[in-house]
């Protein structure tokens, strides 16, 4: 790919902002340049950041997320398994933060009873695919995130094709089923997992790198026997845990120390108390 002209054009279309120690570029010229040079928007974003040019949409991340960390996010590839309650918020936060490539897998369609908590759902989307809503939402929020969708419930045999091209798995599944298989398969492929699981006012999240202790004891139940079946799931618990998952994901992708390895974060939304437990 001949990109020397691209980099000169980038510099020409960038501008400085007071109080920021790097140049910025607006969305429209960066997208135009990607088109002119026949590269994908996420690749154009990586090139801009490599050349110390920040897409202006991220400037409020600075200094919490440095330009180097923003580049780490732009280069990163994540898979979000489940586009329901947890997944909807996780996708929102990671796309806004500037993750470069994301695969979203879910075989479900929206039901009216999802709308109490699922960010991607809305009245007019009842009966529609969740992954399609995820793709559309991501496109609306950030054209520099490339989102691939997989409109099925993942099975064991799907994982070897997906995990090697992911830096991180976000386990946003609904129900106890398949969580441990996903964790094991990710371990085999050397892929860390950030998992979240909730029921009523109780929310939990954990980060598992290959070889770590896992929270799988929470999932030792038959199909449909998790506490969420009896208690349901509510927006505040779901969004709280999804936020923790996204925070861990950003730390891992930007090579900072995650907080929830060999631990489980417990949000007791009844007592408004939060604790990090050792597993």
């Amino acid at each position: 790919m001949e990109l020397s002209g691209f980099i000169q054009d980038l510099a020409r279309h960038s501008h400085t902002l007071d109080n920021y120690p790097f140049a910025c570029i607006l969305d429209a010229p960066l997208l135009d340049l990607a088109g002119n040079y026949n590269i994908q928007p996420w690749q154009a974003q990586v090139k801009a950041l490599e050349n110390q040019i920040c897409p202006e949409r991220y400037i409020r991340n600075f200094k919490t997320i440095s330009l180097d960390m923003q580049l780490d996010l732009a280069r990163s590839r994540v898979i979000v398994v489940g586009a329901g309650g947890l997944g909807g918020f996780v996708i929102e936060l990671l796309v806004r933060s500037g993750v470069g490539r994301m695969t979203v897998a879910d075989g479900d369609v929206f039901e009216l009873s999802n709308l109490n908590r699922q960010l991607l759902g809305s009245t007019h989307l009842v009966g529609k695919n969740k992954v399609e809503a995820a793709g559309n939402r991501a496109k609306d929020i950030n054209p520099f995130t490339r989102v691939k969708t997989c409109g099925k419930y993942l099975q064991q045999e799907d994982l070897p094709g997906l995990l090697p091209e992911s830096d991180l798995v976000l386990d946003c599944l609904g129900g106890v089923e398949f969580r441990e298989q996903l964790l094991q398969a990710a371990g085999i492929h050397g892929c860390p997992v950030v998992t979240g699981f909730v029921a009523g006012n109780t929310g939990l999240a954990s980060t598992v790198f290959p070889g770590d202790r896992t929270p799988a004891a929470f999932w030792q139940a038959g199909q449909g026997q998790g506490a969420e079946i009896a208690l349901g799931n509510v927006a505040c618990t779901v969004s709280m845990i999804a936020t923790l998952q996204a925070r861990e994901a950003i730390h891992i992708l930007t090579r900072q120390k995650p907080c929830l390895r060999n631990r489980v974060f417990l949000a007791d939304m009844q007592a408004c108390s939060f604790e990090s437990l050792e597993i």
Binding site: G84, G85, G174, V176, F197, V198, A221, G226, N233
Partner: peptide, 10 residues
């Protein structure tokens, strides 16, 4: 002491 059942909602 904290006591938990199976939890898997998402």
């Amino acid at each position: 002491v904290g006591v938990f059942p199976a939890v898997g909602g998402g």
